[in-house]
Nucleic acid binder design. Sequence first.
DNA 1: TACATTTCTTAATCTAGGTTATTGGTGTCG
DNA 2: CGACACCAATAACCTAGATTAAGAAATGTA
Lengths: 194, 194
Amino acid sequence: MDYSLILTNVAKHIPLTPEEAQHFVSLLESRTYRSRKMVLEEGAICRHSIFVTKGCLRGFTTDKNGFEHVLSFAPPDWWIADMYSLITQKPGVLNIEVLENTEVLLLSKANQERLFIDIPKFERFFRILIENSLVSTQQRIIDNLSLTAEERYAHFCQKYPSLVYCLPQKQIAAFIGVTPEFFSKMKKSLLKKL
Amino acid sequence: MDYSLILTNVAKHIPLTPEEAQHFVSLLESRTYRSRKMVLEEGAICRHSIFVTKGCLRGFTTDKNGFEHVLSFAPPDWWIADMYSLITQKPGVLNIEVLENTEVLLLSKANQERLFIDIPKFERFFRILIENSLVSTQQRIIDNLSLTAEERYAHFCQKYPSLVYCLPQKQIAAFIGVTPEFFSKMKKSLLKKL
DNA sequence: TACATTTCTTAATCTAGGTTATTGGTGTCG
DNA sequence: CGACACCAATAACCTAGATTAAGAAATGTA
């Protein structure tokens, strides 16, 4: 098993000794998922933080009319979970689905808590991780309040350049908050402008 | 100076000995602000986390057309800051304004870091604080993507019952993401429905 | 190769919410 | 007291984006 991606990810924020790194990876489980598998379903309790090493996941909710809204994508080197459910250990609202064949590392809630006790600086690591996540989530609210669909799409292209070409465009539409039909129309009118 | 509100706020998540509590409050500065004062302006570096003990603040951004969009309100017992700027110590995009005469406690970034060293469990406290903030920010994105303005207003009333009656309604409009004119129209049509 | 399923495109029509403009109310301060 | 700034309400008109309903392309699968 290759842990270099996740160890580099951790090392961006806290230094680990070889022994600490060894202890950390011993708390992880690795999994392989086929495209379209649901990793977590609405109403279930989220018991792991998921780190993607290969492939891509998406987190989404379904509204009362059956429409899906994408909260986040998780390409390699990203973490994903239903934060609400993971924290409270109550049933959550998020669905997590596999978009292409994907490899992940799982850190269970119990192992995460053990980690906080055994190597307290992981408390710092996850604080920083969540701080960054909060900042980008807040920025997205500001974008939703102040930008047009076209501008939000432009931001998306800047922020996730690798995803723009590998994702079905209905998924991008469900992220920026428009219907697939409007997204198609918009893309066409963007081409005309060039 | 009365520190009971902030100490209760901390005690919700981590237990403190009297000595630790004493050390914590020694790192705080208290301030009083008059209504309409700008506590933080766009382009400035955010150097403190702000805890409100009395009154109310709001955090907002201004878009390229001059319209304001409210990211958060901070009534008593809430924390507020420009997270991006506070973390990076680079110029931020958030304005923080006083909505009525207000009393706050300030924790500077430097003192926060000292606190993490002196009393490491504060690392845990702020992680939990930010986790909760992330969960409610994510929920707001889902709401923005899947609910109508009327439904978002209903959510707002549930979440901030104390603010609904004390805030100018243009501020509520700028939070849920509609113009004051539409908000007025909407409120009228809600009355008819009863 | 054919068939099923999902995704993308187009176009007509519709609506939630924005824009602009006018009016009246309510502080607040010299 | 009057002047001025801010806030709320209303109404007529406008537009970004939704809805509905086709087909056309692409993709999977046998």
